[in-house]
Amino acid sequence: MVFARKTFFDAVRVSLFDGVLKRRQVAGLTAILDGVSDVREIDDRWLAYMLATAHHETGRTMQPVRETFAASDSRAIVVLDSAFEDGSLPSVSAPYWRRDAEGKTWLGRGLVQLTHKINYEKMALATGIDLVSRPERAMELSVAVDILFIGMETGTFTGRRLGQYFSESTEDWAGARRIINGRDRAELVAGYGRRYLAAIRQAG
C-alpha cells in the first residue's frame, strides 16, 4: 500500500492528535504503516481499524504499553491487585497478572493488550517469536506490530478477524471491536477508524 505519508500525518495530526504529533507517536504510526508494503496489499479499512485499535489500546501513545499504563511490571501488578481486591475488575475471576513459579507475569502488553499465558503461547506459535520464555518482548515495537497484524488478520485474539467485518459486502466499524474486546468502547474505536481511513484515502 503506497500513499503520501506526509499527507497522512498532516491529516491525523489534526483529526486525531489535537494538532500535535510527538516523535514517539510518529514512530509508532510509522512502524504500523511499515507493516503494510507494496507487496502486502490489504484493504485500507483493515489498516485504518488496526491503527484505530492501537490508538485506543495505547492511550494514543502509539507505543506498546503495559496494562494500567504502568512503567514497570511490578507497578502494574500492584495496581491490578488493588483493583481486583476492591472489586473493580468484576469480569476477572483469577489474578492472571501475578507472577508464576518462574517469576513471569502474563499481564497485558503491547499495542493490543495480550493477556494470560495461554494467549502468549498462541501468539508465540502464530508469530514465531518466543513470547513464552520472554513475555516482555511484547513491549518491543516491532514485535507488538507483528502481534497486532497477525492477531487481527487471523483471529488469534478472540476468533474474530478483520475479514469478517470489512469485505466487498461488509463494513461494520462497531462490530469489528469484537476482534479485540467484545463491544467495549466500540463506537469510540469505530470513530477513530473512520478518521484514520479518511487520512489514508486523502493520502492515496
Rank of each mutant, 00 (worst) to 15 (best):
E171Q: 14
D38E: 11
L197N: 03
V92L: 12
V65I: 15
D43T: 11
Q63F: 09
G204R: 14
K104E: 05
E171M: 02
V145H: 04
R109N: 03
A48V: 09
Q164T: 08
M152S: 12
L107W: 01
L114P: 13
L80E: 04
D34S: 11
R160P: 00
A174E: 15
A94L: 06
H55W: 06
A144D: 04
G163D: 10
M1R: 11
A70P: 13
W97R: 07
S93M: 12
A71K: 14
D130M: 02
K104T: 01
T158H: 07
I147T: 08
I147P: 00
R185H: 03
E136Q: 13
A27W: 07
D184H: 06
L197G: 03
R195E: 15
L21F: 04
E121R: 08
V39L: 10
L188F: 03
D10W: 04
A4I: 02
A176V: 02
G19V: 10
Q202T: 01
E187K: 05
A48W: 12
K117H: 11
T61G: 00
L16R: 07
A203L: 09
V78M: 11
E140Y: 04
R66C: 08
A198P: 06
A174N: 10
Y165L: 04
M152I: 06
L188I: 05
G155K: 08
R194V: 04
A48H: 12
F157I: 05
E57V: 05
E57M: 10
D146E: 15
S91C: 03
H55Y: 09
A54E: 07
Y196Q: 02
T7A: 01
L131I: 09
L51Q: 06
Q25A: 07
A144V: 05
N119D: 06
G28Q: 06
G151P: 07
F69Y: 14
T61Q: 14
A83P: 00
E187Y: 03
R161Q: 05
M1F: 11
L89N: 04
S88W: 00
D18H: 12
Y49M: 09
Q25H: 06
R109Q: 09
L125K: 15
A27I: 04
P135L: 03
K104R: 14
D34A: 10
M50S: 13
R109E: 05
M62A: 03
A101M: 12
R5N: 02
V65K: 12
T156E: 11
F166W: 09
V112N: 01
R195Y: 06
Q202P: 00
I118L: 10
A176G: 06
S15L: 11
M139C: 12
R160Y: 15
T58N: 12
P135A: 01
F149P: 06
D38N: 06
E153F: 12
